[in-house]
């Protein structure tokens, strides 16, 4: 994430909004990926992305609860506060119709790492103390998600060290 992509976070209320938005965007992205996998008959991956989406939605709800009466605002309006893309939203370009669970987890890991980097940077930034503290607590959470991804990656090793080749390669027709 480039520095230009980080929106200014000047209050705790704003941070709740952004944190909620980060999780909601991540959930939305996993739904998109799940739909894509369903359309391309990779049902195992579709299930996996739906699970990930559910997890992210739970995180979003948790942040909403945490915010309590402070509220979560509109998280930057329909377009969102990020110049390029929301940090925890999975990279759509990395999707492939024949991706494996391992590939999906790598995608999720990269997303969690971007979120972690965002909160870590914010916790060290010259902003209000309360904002830094809240960012640090979100960073702790993201670090756990990163660790979880690593554990899952061990459970789902790469399907094979060498890709067997694309069974439906673009040049074949």
């Amino acid at each position: 994430m480039s520095g230009a992509n980080v929106p200014p976070v000047t209050s705790v209320a704003a941070l709740y909004g952004i944190a909620h938005r980060i999780e909601a965007d991540a959930a939305e992205r996993y739904v998109m990926l799940a739909d894509q996998m369903e359309t391309h008959n990779n049902l195992e991956l579709a299930r996996m992305f739906r699970d990930l989406a559910r997890a992210e939605r739970l995180h979003a709800d948790k942040i909403r609860d945490l915010a309590g009466s402070i509220g979560i605002g509109d998280g930057g309006g329909p377009i969102g506060p990020w110049k390029s893309d929301s940090p925890e939203a999975a990279d759509l370009y990395a999707a492939r119709y024949d991706m494996s669970p391992h590939d999906a987890l790598r995608l999720a890991l990269a997303a969690e790492e971007r979120a972690l980097a965002f909160y870590t940077d914010l916790a060290a930034a010259k902003v209000d103390r309360a904002v830094r503290d809240l960012a640090a607590s979100f960073a702790v959470e993201e670090r756990e998600h990163v660790a979880l991804c690593h554990r899952l990656l061990e459970r789902y090793p790469p399907a094979s060290a060498v890709r067997p080749g694309d069974p439906d390669a673009p040049g074949d027709r």
Partner: peptide
């Protein structure tokens, strides 16, 4: 549901 290839820029 879009039928673009997963990874297609058009999703974005």
């Amino acid at each position: 549901k879009p039928i673009w290839c997963p990874g297609c820029g058009d999703y974005h």
